[in-house]
Amino acid sequence: MSKDGAFASSLAGVVERLPELVNGDVPLVRRGEFLTADFMIEVGSRAHYVAIVNGRIATLVPGPLLMRSWSFAIRGSEDAWRQFWRPLPPPHFHDIFALAKRGEFRIEGDFRPLMTNLLYFKALLAAPRALKREAHQ
């Protein structure tokens, strides 16, 4: 596997750790207890479909999937996500809206689930910062 391919693969591995990171975080699950929604994370060209039921990640499925719907999607380059997931992200790579303002992230679709549960989603998306893995250091 090329260096770039290994890098992308390890970032996908980070995404796939989300269920254990989120479902094991009792305060975070409580924060999302009234949330049931589907959304999509795209890291580079790799999509992952996330189904949340009452604040827990019920399923996380790597794409591409045909005809899978989602309420909103958050998309960014591999480098943008790598910076965002650093344990101490650099200025203006530390927040999804900071990255959106820079044009590094695109957030699309129905914003209502995101905005009604904004602190929850921000914590969910930043959860991989707790991982100290070579892929995002």
């Binding site: 101490l88 992200p89 200025p91 530390h94 927040d95 999804i96 809206f97 900071a98 905005m115 009604t116 904004l118 602190l119 921000k122």
Partner: peptide
Amino acid sequence: EICAGIVSGLIAPQ
């Protein structure tokens, strides 16, 4: 919740 959620990213991670 939304006001706090919006401004939360303006706080430095440190």
